[in-house]
Design a protein around this nucleic acid. Structure first.
Lengths: 174, 174
DNA sequence: TATTGTTATACTCTATAACTATA
DNA sequence: TATAGTTATAGAGTATAACAATA
């Protein structure tokens, strides 16, 4: 069975995005590629674990995480806004989760166009379990990082999130 | 034309992944979600600009960036390792770029199974232009961030990249 | 037997767009 | 007219797997 080619790569073993820069490049660029490769490393690991251990995906996990905060459920339109994807995609993910009994749609009698999605009891149990694992994975990945670095990262990323300036043309005029 | 629903969202206007945590959560988890939402914000912007201004995608840009460092070209297998995707995907992306005249395959007479992919003159020109824009976008997005924060971010992310510990089961046994 | 690259296939996620039912 | 949600479609990106040619 040597004709099979499963993807088996240790990311630390190969150069990554950051290696595409040279010291002469702007610090911003090197910073960005370093941040991106950190994120990709961690995100890939989480996606892979969600897949192998819970047979699910990050968007599905995220949708359930949104619902978990709102015991009464959320309107599809709000889910779409918070998750920054279009309506049709929320319908699709909700369909999958509903088929597995993890969420349910509740029709709204006041406005019969809209419905509310919420976690079922089974969905709440499943999410709690996944969220615990998810947290363990993250903790274990950050394990070697000194406390001061953690604090500093948290603070400066907070600044960055505020300061990041999106190009005007990519935003709606209003 | 109100039945059309184009995705037009200002990411700063809605809660994001980070808002799924509460102060009682572990700092690691809050840190991770904050980092992820920073990255997603910036990455989404870059993908969108690559699409609208250069009609291309991030994986295609990344493949060209790899080749740009190696004037002699790279083997498909090495591209696959560096970009951490399977062989078949490299074939697909290379096909697209070759069709547009941006890269070319050179057969290797010593080992007739393998070939080398390299940028054409047109590809080098195109990449230089895109890379300049890409750098401008990044610079402009980091514009409001104080210098000290930049330095600190760069250092601590460097640490993180070294310390991030992948789960043993996700790596090959060797 | 193992490696290089290609092809075929399937699946998820995404966007655009048109549609239905309702407001 | 506008909104909530659905459906249809298309395309990118990914993985798994089998294959041919070559080593």
């Amino acid at each position: 069975m040597n004709d099979m080619q499963t993807l088996v790569v240790d990311p630390h073993q190969y150069p990554d995005l950051e290696s595409l820069t040279v010291p002469e490049d702007h610090l911003d660029l090197r910073l960005w590629l370093r941040m991106l490769s950190c994120c990709n490393l961690i995100e890939t690991e989480i996606r892979s674990r969600l897949r192998t251990e819970y047979d699910t995906t990050l968007p599905r996990f995220d949708l359930m995480a949104q619902l978990q905060r709102e015991p009464g459920g959320m309107k599809m339109t709000d889910l779409s806004r918070y998750m920054m994807v279009t309506n049709g995609n929320i319908t699709g993910i909700t369909d999958q989760l509903e088929k597995e009994g993890l969420v349910e749609r509740i029709r709204n009698s006041a406005d019969r166009r809209s419905s509310v999605v919420r976690l079922t009891a089974k969905g709440r149990r499943a999410f709690r379990k996944m969220a615990r694992s998810h947290e363990e994975w993250v903790l274990s990945m950050f394990d070697g990082l000194p406390d001061t670095s953690r604090d500093v990262l948290f603070e400066t990323l907070g600044q960055l999130k505020t300061f990041v300036r999106l190009q005007p043309s990519s935003r709606p005029a209003g």
